[in-house]
Computed example of a mutant assay.
Amino acid sequence: MILRVSVAIAGLAVVALGILLIPLPGPGWFIVIGGLAIWAVEFTWAKKLLNFTRRNVRAWTSWIGRQPLPLRSVIGVVGLIFVAAVVWASVKVSLDIDLITETRNVFGW
């Protein structure tokens, strides 16, 4: 029982940290999956969810690898735009700084 509770608490701490880091650039999702792996040591539902996640990440990676370079480039650009939007929104909400306005002011646009 002590092991089960310890695994539950450790997994919860890691997942919570990962969720807090998701909006920021960095390994937020990786940390969430790490917490899920900790839970999978003791909980069957977490093991099933972890296997499902691994299968789908591998399928997505394989599918991307089979696509022509122009499509992969478009997917990459869309990903970068998404990350930029998340960074902009995170800075705007947490620090009340509009990066677009600040950039315009720096360059005099």
Rank of each mutant, 00 (worst) to 15 (best):
I2R: 12
I2T: 13
L3G: 02
L3P: 02
L3F: 10
R4N: 08
R4A: 10
S6W: 06
S6E: 11
V7N: 00
A8R: 06
I9N: 08
A10N: 01
A10Y: 01
A10F: 10
A10Q: 02
L12H: 05
V14I: 14
V15D: 00
V15Q: 01
V15W: 00
V15A: 01
V15L: 00
A16C: 07
A16Q: 03
A16H: 03
A16Y: 08
L17T: 12
L17Y: 11
G18V: 05
I19Q: 01
I19G: 00
L20S: 04
L21G: 01
I22S: 00
L24S: 05
L24T: 02
P25M: 05
P25F: 04
G26Q: 09
W29H: 04
F30H: 08
F30M: 14
I31L: 09
I31V: 14
V32D: 05
V32R: 06
V32I: 14
V32K: 04
I33Q: 01
I33T: 09
G35H: 04
G35A: 05
L36T: 04
L36R: 02
L36P: 03
A37S: 11
A40E: 04
A40I: 02
A40F: 03
V41E: 01
E42C: 10
T44D: 10
T44F: 10
W45T: 11
W45D: 05
W45E: 09
A46H: 05
K47W: 07
K48D: 11
K48P: 00
K48V: 15
N51L: 14
F52L: 12
F52S: 05
T53Q: 07
T53E: 09
T53I: 07
R54S: 10
R55F: 11
R55C: 03
N56R: 10
N56Q: 09
V57T: 08
A59K: 13
T61A: 13
G65E: 13
G65P: 00
Q67Y: 03
P70S: 04
P70H: 05
P70M: 04
L71A: 03
V74R: 08
I75V: 11
I75R: 00
I75M: 11
V77Y: 03
V77A: 07
G79T: 01
G79Y: 05
L80D: 04
L80C: 13
I81V: 15
I81T: 07
F82G: 10
A84N: 07
A85N: 08
A85D: 06
A85H: 07
V86H: 07
V86K: 10
V86R: 11
A89H: 11
S90C: 06
V91H: 02
V91M: 05
K92I: 00
K92F: 11
V93H: 09
V93F: 13
V93G: 01
S94T: 11
L95C: 09
L95H: 03
I97K: 09
D98Y: 03
D98S: 08
L99V: 04
L99Y: 06
I100S: 07
T101I: 12
T103E: 06
T103H: 12
T103Y: 14
R104T: 04
R104F: 10
R104Q: 12
N105Q: 14
V106M: 15
V106H: 13
F107N: 06
F107M: 10
F107G: 07
G108I: 06
W109E: 08
W109R: 06
